[in-house]
Design a protein around this nucleic acid. Structure first.
Length: 915
RNA sequence: GGUCGCUUAGCUCAGCUGGUAGAGCGCCACGUUCACAUCGUGGAUGUCGCAGGUUCGAGUCCUGCAGCGACCACCA
């Protein structure tokens, strides 16, 4: 206990050992029996599983620090606080990484074949897969590592299968040929969410489609009816105009559509039009999708390459014509001139050909959102393809209701509306991916045509008995398995004790980016398969950005390595810095070019805690410490004050944590610890802790100090667990009181109302003002450090003078005051006015510049008069007196009295100053 | 195009249900025997984007405007 601590906190020397001790103590592990047998109240967070191949970045740092703070807090509250860790197999992302590795060796995945490729991915995952979880330990994450899961674990495969088959049996999973988002680089289908719209500067090309001669009459009539889209070429041919942002798709047009009620084109519906470059003739149809007020009011219809056009075709019977290969080249179905051309080249070629033939009417600049693959940023191609889908509307209903009725709350709350809007407009989800890495779709096809969807791999066809079954080659969207995470991690579909104990969970902490990808789907699956929501609180934190507001990313090179920060400044420093910026709904900004500046605040705070503890441990010594209750009669004002402040700090921290106001919690505790415990309390008790101090006051100070630090460390533990634990473990303990096994399971300070002491707080506040004001005056008049002064305190509330006189002993220590008088002062003096109305004189004959003092006081009086005028105006206002809350009016009256008092006293003194 | 959000001290941002502005960093001055210079003490800086409105009173509520941002969207 009297062991020497270094004057600087060296995180490296304490953090790893401390973490090991926690793990060895088993504090992170929560067995189902804690809930089922011991009856403890569970609190469950499942980690947003990072990609198995990921390396820890600041985004993870933020996400996991927040979760850890919440878990550590709940653990101290006595909850069975379980944080389940794990990783996600991340289909496309992981496959891409391995493909890149192979490419470096000059190998394509096809060269290896599916089986070998998947083996290779497993090898890769086996080598690097656990890295990120190990890295989480460095930042102090108190996950239950015995429960680590991977979305491709065997039992999670069972969950995926059960869900797929079950949804299929309920007709909520189906296979069909629809327009999906296709990434021509990844060569796979994507969900709507995976196709991210990026604002792109493009063009809108206007194309002319010539009409056959028999329609020229109708065309002329249309033109006469005001249809500007109808016109005549130089050779007399009538044509219509359509527009497109993707001219190459015109090769796949199978019709032109107008709005059913559009009189301008009434005569043309049912007619046909020549499709340039192709020699094909396509019909003109009417469909409600067309907006008659947009552009020409005529739309080219490309059913195989546009979602809306596909729907138009469904309603009007237009043909489907696929003109593109999976890697986005023009297919066999296109004229020879374009066949095999990449879509970009094809666009140029088509435009050139149209222009050459006079069918290009014009071009406009056009900015629009072009969908890109969220993994490789290639422009996504809407494409007709046979895929598996989940029918979402029925699943969305309870998930939507849960938000509306408040079962699930969102923080910040505005995400509730975003969530509901998405749920209300939900579309079916394309879940099949043409990848090799992932959960293989549990569907087999028999040569007899039978489709077998099964929980267990079938050995023979259920209809014809043939053993020649082929499993669907595709895998499922990664999010299909991660959406089951809140219950698949507990062994479902088996009805395990874990599931009973820990489902539903409580808080989900993640970034808003994956609200649709993950959060909303977990909620839907929770209702569908467990009958209730997987959690009730969704806390969406911000994004980590650099000082310029740019999102930290590998490609921008503006990232900060959390492990480097831990190495250099300690996990506590990083955690505090992050949490103190974690205001609801705001991003975290950190300067990647000056990492030290970014984390200095956290580092300094951790060091401050360290030194406060170091001082306390040295001062307390090895002598037994008495329980606070036994010394209550000997408590000094500052003891009562700091205990009261501590109770309030605890209260504030609890309320803040309950509402996810983490930055307020961090800053509140920072202010309490640094600004009150260190700046005031420790300074005040220094003399009382001295060996020669009067025994009763010394013991009271020692008991209070231990109580204050014990509680302060508890309150700070969730945010800065390492330094607090290290010190707490060395803290002497009150005799006869049971010491918790470890700080991280010490009870959370709550219900300390009995320590709140308004009287002590207001008396101490006055005392603080006195000190501060004296210090200020000393500075202002340049009184040297070595020079002691006398102060005369005049007036103030009842008992104030007496209280000050009692504190006289410490006045010298804090403000170099050798004499405090509470009688009226006389003559020339510096002066200050305390908030409680008391006034002090600091006799400083010969030190003061009288003229300057006079000017200052005049300014002061002017200011006071102004304020007084304002307060009087308010009090003179009948409506204010009648309508404002009583306490506000009372406060105003009090204010008025004080201002009057201060002002008149200042005037007197101004007179006293002479000239 | 729709929806939502933001605009407060040099910088990054707090400010919950309206009652005469805050933090951290930075800056200036002074200070190292006495836990901590990753420190202490004191100090300076804001017409709370602009214009109206409601109210006794608005950074806080309402409207409009300007700038920025996010999310959603099938306008070819």
């Amino acid at each position: 206990m009297s062991q020497e601590l270094p004057p600087r906190l060296d995180p490296r020397s304490i953090e790893p050992a401390r973490y090991r001790a926690w793990q060895e103590g088993g504090y992170f592990h929560v067995p189902a029996s804690a809930v089922l047998e011991e009856g403890r109240d569970p609190y469950v967070i499942v980690i947003p599983p990072p990609n198995v191949t990921a390396a820890l970045h600041m985004g993870h740092g933020l996400n996991n620090t927040v979760q850890d703070v919440l878990i550590r807090w709940r653990r101290m509250q006595g909850r069975a606080a379980l944080w389940v860790p794990g990783t996600d197999h991340a289909g496309i992302a992981t496959q891409n990484v391995v493909e890149r590795q192979l490419a470096a060796e000059g190998i394509h995945r096809d060269d290896l074949g599916r089986e070998k490729f998947v083996e290779r991915v497993w090898d890769f995952v086996g080598e690097t897969g656990g890295t990120i979880l190990e890295q989480l330990k460095a930042i102090g994450a108190s996950c239950d590592w015995d429960r680590t899961r991977f979305t491709l674990d065997d039992d999670l495969r069972q969950a995926v299968r059960e869900v797929f088959v079950s949804l299929y049996e309920k007709d909520l999973v189906y296979r069909g040929e629809y327009i999906i988002n296709w990434c021509p680089r990844c060569l796979t289908a994507l969900s709507n969410e995976e196709a991210e719209g990026e604002e792109t500067q493009g063009h809108l090309w206007h194309l002319r489609y010539p009409l056959p001669e028999e329609s020229w009459g109708a065309a002329e009539a249309s033109r006469a009816a005001g249809a500007e889209a109808i016109g005549q070429l130089d050779d007399g041919t009538w044509y219509l105009t359509v527009s497109t942002t993707r001219p190459e798709t015109m090769l796949g047009d199978t019709g032109v559509a107008v709005y059913p009620g559009d009189d301008r084109y009434a005569g043309l519906v049912g007619a046909s039009v020549h499709l340039p470059l192709t020699g094909r003739t396509i019909p003109i149809v009417a469909d409600r999708h067309v907006d008659p007020d947009f552009g020409s009011g005529m739309v080219k219809v490309t059913p195989a390459h546009d979602k809306n056009d596909f729907e138009i075709a469904g309603r009007t019977g237009l043909e489907l014509l696929d003109v593109m290969t999976p890697d986005a080249r023009m297919s066999e179905g296109t004229p020879e001139a374009f066949r095999g051309l990449d879509r970009v080249e094809a666009r140029k070629a088509v435009l050139a050909a149209l222009e050459a033939e006079g069918f290009l009417a014009g071009t406009d600049e056009h900015t629009h959102a072009v969908p890109h693959c969220y993994r490789c940023h290639t422009v996504v191609e809407p494409r007709l393809s046979e895929q598996w889908f989940v029918s979402m509307k029925p699943l969305a209903e309870p998930a939507l209701a849960a938000s509306r009725d408040g079962t699930i709350t969102f923080t910040p709350s505005h995400w509730q509306r975003v969530y509901e809007h998405w749920m209300e407009n939900i579309q079916d989800w394309c879940i099949s991916r043409q990848l090799w890495w992932g959960h293989r779709i549990p569907v087999w096809y028999c040569e007899c045509g039978e489709v077998i969807v099964a929980r267990e791999d079938p050995t023979a066809c259920t209809r014809c008995g043939s053993a020649a079954l082929e499993q669907d080659p595709d895998v499922l969207d990664t999010w299909f398995s991660s959406q089951l995470w809140p219950f698949s991690v507990f062994g479902w579909p088996k009805q395990t004790d874990d599931l009973k104990a820990f489902y539903p969970g409580h808080t989900l902490v993640t970034a808003p980016e994956i609200l649709f990808f993950w959060v909303s789907r977990m909620i839907m699956m929770g209702y569908e398969f467990q009958g209730e929501a997987p959690f009730t609180q969704v806390y969406l934190h911000g994004t980590v950005r650099d000082i310029k507001g740019r999102k930290m990313s590998k490609s921008l090179g503006n990232g900060i390595d959390p492990l480097g920060v831990v190495e250099e400044f300690g996990a506590d420093a990083m955690r505090y810095t992050i949490i103190s910026q974690c205001a609801v709904g705001t991003d975290i900004s950190l300067d990647h070019e000056d990492v030290e500046a970014a984390f200095a605040n956290g580092r300094n705070f951790a060091n401050k805690i360290w030194n406060a503890g170091r001082f306390a441990l040295m001062s307390l010594g090895d002598a037994p410490v008495r329980p606070l209750a036994e010394v209550s009669g000997d408590l000094a004002l500052e003891d009562r004050w700091i205990l009261s402040r501590m109770a309030r700090a605890a209260d504030g921290a609890t309320r803040g944590l309950e509402r996810f106001r983490l930055h307020e919690v961090a800053e509140g505790l920072y202010h309490f610890f640094w600004g009150e415990v260190c700046d005031w309390y420790l300074e005040l008790v220094k003399s009382r802790l001295a060996a020669d101090a009067e025994p009763a006051t010394r013991e009271a100070a020692r008991a209070t100090l231990v109580a204050v630090l014990d509680h302060a460390f508890r309150l700070l533990q969730p945010i800065v667990p390492f330094v607090t634990s290290e010190l707490w473990a060395r803290l002497p303990w009150p005799e006869g009181e049971e010491r918790p096994e470890d700080l991280i399971v010490a009870p959370w300070p709550e219900g300390l109302e009995s320590w709140m002491d308004d009287e002590a707080e207001s008396a101490f506040a006055a005392f603080q003002s006195l000190i501060v004001e004296t210090r200020r005056l000393r500075k202002e008049y340049g009184v040297g450090e070595g020079q002691r002064v006398a102060i005369h305190v005049v007036g103030g509330p009842e008992g104030f003078g007496q209280m000050i006189a009692q504190q006289g002993a410490v006045m010298d220590q804090l403000a170099r005051v050798d004499r405090v008088e509470t009688t009226a002062g006389e003559g020339v003096g510096a002066n200050g006015v305390l908030p409680n109305g008391a006034e002090l004189f600091l006799p400083l004959e010969g030190v003061i510049d009288v003229a300057r003092e006079r000017t200052r006081m005049e300014g002061e009086i002017e200011k006071l008069e102004g304020m007084l005028k304002g307060v009087r105006a308010r009090l003179g206002n009948e409506k204010f007196v009648a309508n404002a809350p009583d306490e506000v009016v009372a406060k105003a009256r009090e204010n008025e009295a004080q201002l009057e008092d201060q002002s008149s006293k200042l005037r007197e003194k101004l007179v006293g100053l002479g000239v």
